[in-house]
């Protein structure tokens, strides 16, 4: 398994798309951080970029990559290795290289140019988002037979989590605004890794006060360490669950 991870990530680290992705992230990060002398404003811009691009690019690139590797996966499966190991190794190799891209593109400039706790949280956020959206891509790959359809679903998934979900959440809040909905909202937010990651990031910046302004529960939950832990744990679920479902479903998949 380690062998496959090694070779897959070696292959992907020379992939043009990944190199461009890294360079683009680095250019944006350095640009944003240098433009503003106010680091927490720069961090907010970087957060917006991360929340918008990392999920989309991770899920799209990963889906395309998995579907393109189908023959290679067949070749590996013809060797005496367990199916799960091949699948997880492919995932790990991919995730390693995408995470490396993010770490170099965003993490490195942040470490050099800022010295804030929030910067670290942003990097962790970006990595967690990469992990969970690659996991979702893996699930799409396992459940879909057709590449074109898989890519379509990947785009819809990314769009759903970055836009549609919030729209539904807003509608929900609006329709039930007469009821005490603080708690359900905090629960519902856990259903979207992008929202989780946004909140986790905001909690590190002083703008989180603006959220506390709107309700006692938010103040209590989101203002404390418990809030951060809650968000991180939910994010980890978003990494683990698609992976587990993928491996279970993959055992039954025809190639």
């Amino acid at each position: 398994m380690r062998t496959i991870i090694k070779y897959v990530s070696l292959d992907l680290l020379r992939n043009k798309t990944i190199l461009i992705y890294t360079a683009l992230l680095a250019a944006i990060s350095i640009g944003v951080l240098n433009m503003d002398d106010n680091t927490s404003k720069g961090l907010l811009s970087l957060m917006n970029i991360t929340l918008l691009f990392v999920p989309l690019i991770s899920i799209l690139f990963a889906t395309i990559y998995f579907f393109n590797s189908i023959e290679f996966i067949e070749l590996l499966l013809a060797q005496p290795i367990k199916r799960n190991k091949v699948l997880l190794a492919e995932y790990a190799g991919l995730v390693l290289s995408l995470c490396a891209a993010y770490a170099v593109g965003v993490g490195l400039p942040l470490v050099i140019l800022t010295k804030q706790m929030a910067a670290l949280v942003l990097v962790v956020n970006g990595l967690l988002l990469t992990l969970s959206f690659c996991g979702l891509a893996l699930l799409i790959f396992v459940l879909c037979k057709d590449k074109t359809r898989g890519i379509g679903i990947a785009i819809i998934t990314a769009l759903f989590f970055s836009l549609l979900f919030d729209g539904l959440l807003l509608t929900f809040i609006y329709s039930f605004s007469d009821y005490p909905i603080d708690k359900p909202i905090v629960g519902l937010v856990a259903l979207n890794p992008i929202d989780l990651s946004r909140i986790l990031m905001l909690l590190q910046l002083d703008v989180s006060v603006l959220m506390g302004y709107s309700g006692a529960l938010f103040k209590k939950l989101l203002g404390s360490t418990t809030g951060s832990i809650y968000a991180v744990v939910c994010m980890l679920f978003w990494v683990a669950v698609p992976l587990i479902v993928s491996t279970v479903k993959f055992n039954k998949k025809d190639l």
Partner: peptide
């Protein structure tokens, strides 16, 4: 499967290997 050598119809390998 260690007993089997398989030559697929279409061989596609990771691009940069």
């Amino acid at each position: 499967r260690s007993m089997i050598g398989y030559m697929p119809q279409i061989g596609r390998y990771p691009d940069n290997m």
